[in-house]
């Protein structure tokens, strides 16, 4: 299924950013942008699309977050669901920078996941540069990735009318919830069984 149209001027800006960089200061990815393919409807595989949407109407400075369902083409097992939750957030500000991003990630690691040991690792996402992953140490499971983050590429922000830097992150919160509830299988989090939900209590 295809949507009828994509809002302008965003579509033209984005197409130009992809093809030759447009006004974003980039040389672009040098390929022909496929307008037909772009209108195709897909289930979101991560929440970033909502942040991108918000950019066209954001306040500056501004901070936004969402907890949203995402969908992946994965074989369902103990750690993968066909759909799952991610929390998605952005911070827009003329002085927003890497050190502030690290500060926010630290807050997620220590305050929300309750980790005492955490580390930052350079990552790669096509829409952020630089990109940072945050990893936390679980007393039993060892190190694991809490999520990805970065500063949106100017090809993303400038095409959507934002000149300020935008810090962005997406963290898989089902994993945190599992830890908190003492569960070990993501399917138990979405269980239909009334009794197991009734008797469930947090750590």
């Amino acid at each position: 299924m295809h949507c009828k149209q994509i809002e302008e001027p965003w579509l033209t800006n984005v197409a130009r950013a992809h093809e030759n960089g447009g006004d974003t200061g980039s040389r672009g990815w040098s390929y022909k942008f496929d307008h037909e393919f772009t209108r195709r409807q897909v289930l979101r595989s991560q929440g970033t699309v909502l942040s991108a949407h918000q950019l066209t109407k954001c306040k500056k400075p501004g901070k936004y977050f969402g907890v949203v369902r995402c969908f992946r083409y994965d074989e369902v097992d103990a750690t993968h669901g066909a759909d799952f939750y991610q929390t998605e957030g952005i911070v827009i500000g003329k002085d927003a920078n890497l050190k502030e991003l690290l500060g926010l990630l630290k807050m997620f690691a220590t305050e929300i996941a309750g980790a005492t040991d955490y580390k930052y690792v350079p990552g790669y996402f096509p829409f952020t540069e630089p990109s940072i992953e945050i990893h936390i140490k679980h007393p039993k499971l060892g190190w694991f990735e809490l999520g990805g983050s970065g500063i949106f590429r100017p090809e993303v922000t400038k095409a959507l009318g934002v000149d300020e830097p935008v810090l962005a992150w997406g963290l898989g919160i089902d994993r945190m919830a599992l830890m908190n509830l003492g569960l070990s299988d993501i399917r138990d989090l979405f269980t239909p069984e009334i009794e197991s939900v009734r008797t469930r209590r947090g750590n």
Binding site: G93, D95, K106
Partner: peptide, 10 residues
């Protein structure tokens, strides 16, 4: 790089 808390209040 030393982590910092964002300075903009919102």
């Amino acid at each position: 790089f030393e982590p910092e808390i964002p300075k903009d209040f919102t």
